[in-house]
Computed example of a mutant assay.
Amino acid sequence: MTVVVPLDAHRPVTQAAPPRVGVLLVNLGTPDTADARGVRVYLREFLSDPRVIENQGLIWQIILNGIVLVVRPAKKAKDYLKIWNTEKNESPLKTITRAQSDKLAASIADQKHVVVDWGMRYGNPSIKSRIDALTAQGCDRILVMPLYPQYSASTSATVVDKVAAALKDMRAQPTVRFTPPYYDEPSYIDALAVSIERHLATLPYEPEVIMASFHGMPQSYIAKGDPYQAQCIATVDALRARMGLDDRKLMLTFQSRFGYEEWLQPYTDKTIEQLAKDGVRRIAVVTPGFSADCLETLEEIAQENAEIFHHNGGEHFSFIPCLNDSDEGMDVIRQIVLRELRGWI
Rank of each mutant, 00 (worst) to 15 (best):
D331Q: 13
F214N: 07
T235F: 03
V21E: 06
T33D: 08
E90H: 05
P207A: 14
R11W: 07
D269R: 02
K270W: 07
N85Q: 02
A241F: 02
L24I: 08
T155E: 02
R11F: 08
F254N: 02
P181H: 11
L58W: 10
D117G: 12
K82N: 10
R334K: 15
L25V: 05
V3R: 14
V144E: 11
F214H: 05
A212R: 04
R171K: 12
P207S: 11
V209K: 15
F309V: 05
H215P: 01
P186N: 08
L275Q: 13
N124L: 08
E304I: 09
Q100M: 11
A302N: 12
T97H: 12
R198A: 11
H215W: 01
K224M: 06
A34S: 11
E304R: 14
P6C: 05
P218Q: 06
V39L: 04
V176E: 07
Q111G: 00
R248K: 15
S195Y: 02
L252W: 08
R242V: 01
L43E: 08
E208I: 03
L295D: 03
I308K: 10
A166V: 02
I233E: 14
L143H: 12
L264C: 09
A133G: 11
Q100L: 06
A106W: 05
L341H: 12
Y80I: 05
H113Q: 14
T135W: 00
Q231C: 11
H199P: 01
T235Y: 04
W118I: 01
G57A: 06
I127T: 09
N312G: 04
D247T: 10
Q265V: 12
M120K: 14
I196P: 05
A109G: 01
V5W: 09
